[in-house]
Design a protein around this nucleic acid. Structure first.
Length: 539
RNA sequence: GCGCCUGUAGCUCAAUAGGAUAGAGCAUCUGCCUUCUAAGCAGAGGGUUGCCCGUUCGAUUCGGGCCAGGCGCGCCA
């Protein structure tokens, strides 16, 4: 039983009685006293020309055979129609979850549509920051959720491996290398001063001191890339594809896309530079593609990159960017529109910054002062799963306060432990049940109608909501909904555990309750899996 | 100055494409362990949803105007 089934039925009833109206909602009831599902149909229907009385409509609904079969009560209250599901229908959920098992919560919303999620895409000039970490956690989780919803998802990392920043990286490494050899050398002011280049310099075999910058640039790039990949792997984030910017430059795609824009009359020359008429598509000013000195801006290859994404046949493009790129959104949207791609299918999600705290104390970060916590340091200290969870609890477009002390605490104050403890408890009960001779294979044959306690019914109903939550998360591209839901059912489970014993003398009841615990563990497992968080079976 | 994001309980956050009396956790106070892990549970207090208008049956949600915080606003990436 879910809202869309009810809505479908209501539509059917309306149509067969001469009403063509579909702009109403069916949603899980706000409160228990309002039943399980509610609809605002009356409010909406009042605005239409054809009138129908409340009683007439209620009667039509009540007399429908399908409604009779599934609901024990239909009532009108405060203008809403409330639906009360029969317990017998609720029990069917237990069987449904047990049968679906690892597939429970999945759907086919995406219908194999191809989605590209581009994220992290940090320049290979230094270690990943916590801002990248949040993007990584979010992107990985979003990909898993969309896959669970039947989308064909590719996770891609766009690698800015050319341009001035890379040159500076080479120069900086060369300076470090020379210093190591006892030769005075200075890193340029706008170069990379981080300690990590010292470590990388030490890995260089003896080479001629006048080796050109390109060598150092490549060496640094490869080493840093290794480091980034290691960080991501330890954070349980994996990319399907690494897309180097250099490819676009080398194969002439940048020139080609500029030519194409020229043909459309969207490019012009001014002040010795080449401009893109992005204002035609709603940007607040036109943007330079090729600078006076003949080199490209960041935008030019990025347009070529998006052209490439489109050419590869993706139906939906999702970009996760940091807030420092927020001002860049309208120009890339303009570019995508210029290429004739439906702008509705491009989703640029700005993943907001994270502020680290130790208790009440804010950790001030400053690259200059060398006071800087990397993703590596954060996950080494807090642990990858905890780190991920904190990143995912909050909506992407909100700033996040991340208290490292709290995240490390192994107490109830820490929501991550609260959740993990709930899961561990469930697993423990299941294995305890096995020692008492209750086999998981038999759960499906249990008499679920023995689950009569209010909290048991409530638990089942909440577990029933899981697929809806997943669907919503996919539709809104909001991962935090699943994190919140998991916290929620964890609470219900703890409460249940406290109130009732699962395994006791009554064998039939024990079996039914074990089945319920199993259902809980399935949902937790599937939910945590969608978030990309591992599930500890012991603590 | 302009643009984007945010503003909800003391703190951190929810609120399912506009729904009913705005909900959780932490913190505070009061109770609960010979039991499948108390890393937990039960209960209490705590609110003019930043402020003001508007749209409507109904606004935390949408629109306009203020206020506060963050981030952008290069022929950098």
């Amino acid at each position: 039983m879910n809202p869309s089934q009810i809505k479908e039925k209501l539509l059917e009833i309306l149509i067969s009685n001469g009403y063509q109206y579909e702009k109403f909602n069916v949603f899980p009831s706000a409160k228990k006293e309002f039943g399980d599902f509610s609809t605002n149909l009356f409010f909406k229907l009042k605005k239409t020309e054809k009138q129908i009385s409340t009683d007439d409509l209620i009667n039509l609904i009540k007399n429908d055979p399908w409604i009779k079969e599934n609901f024990e009560k239909i009532e009108e209250k405060n203008g809403f129609i409330n639906f009360f599901v029969k317990n017998q229908v609720v029990y069917a959920t237990v069987e449904e979850i047990l049968r679906a098992d690892r597939a429970y919560g999945k759907n086919n919303l995406g219908n194999k549509k191809k989605v590209l999620i581009e994220f992290v895409s940090a320049n290979p000039t230094g270690p990943l920051t916590i801002a990248h970490g949040r993007q990584a956690a979010f992107g990985e989780a979003l990909a898993r959720i969309l896959r669970a919803c039947g989308y064909s998802v590719t996770k891609e990392y766009y690698l800015n491996d050319c341009g001035r920043q890379m040159e500076l990286l080479g120069v900086s490494l060369k300076a470090r290398y020379l210093q190591l050899k006892g030769i005075p050398a200075e890193i340029p002011e706008d170069g990379y001063h981080g300690e990590y280049l010292k470590d990388i310099a030490e890995k260089i075999q003896d080479i001629a001191l006048d080796t050109d910058n390109k060598f150092f640039e490549n060496f640094a790039k490869e080493e840093i890339l290794k480091m980034i990949k290691k960080d991501l792997a330890d954070f349980n984030v994996y990319f399907d594809s690494w897309f180097p910017e250099s490819e676009l430059r080398n194969n002439g795609d940048v020139e080609k896309i500029i030519e194409k824009l020229k043909e459309k009359g969207l490019v012009y020359q001014k002040d010795d530079a080449l401009w893109f008429k992005s204002t035609v598509f709603g940007d607040d000013k036109d943007r330079v593609l090729r600078k006076k000195d003949g080199s490209y801006t960041y935008l030019a290859p990025d347009i070529a990159y998006h052209q490439d994404k489109i050419k590869r046949g993706f139906d939906i493009l999702i970009n996760l960017w940091g807030p420092d790129h927020a001002g860049y959104v309208s120009r890339i949207e303009a570019a995508v529109k210029a290429m004739g791609f439906d702008p509705e299918k491009l989703h640029i999600i700005i993943v907001q910054l994270t502020t680290l705290y130790r208790g009440k104390e804010k950790i001030l970060m400053s690259t200059r002062k060398g006071q800087f916590i990397t993703l590596r340091q954060l996950m080494n200290e807090v642990g990858p799963d905890s780190t991920k969870f904190f990143f995912l609890f909050r909506r992407a477009d909100s700033h996040l306060d991340f208290d490292m002390e709290l995240a490390k605490k192994q107490t109830e104050e820490n929501p991550v432990f609260y959740i993990q403890y709930a899961f561990v408890r469930a697993m423990h009960i299941l294995s305890f049940g096995e020692t008492k001779g209750f086999k998981q294979n038999d759960f499906i044959h249990a008499d679920f109608s023995l689950l009569k306690q209010d909290i048991e019914i409530e638990m089942i109903k909440r577990l029933k909501n899981f697929p809806l939550i997943v669907e919503q998360a996919a539709k809104t591209l909001e991962v935090s909904k699943i994190a919140g839901y998991i916290l929620d059912i964890s609470g219900t489970f703890h409460s249940y555990y406290q109130k009732f014993r699962v395994v006791d003398e009554n064998e039939d009841l024990s079996l039914a309750r074990l089945a319920l615990v199993k259902c809980f563990s399935i949902v937790m497992q599937n939910g945590l899996d969608m978030l990309g968080i591992s599930q500890p079976e012991k603590m």
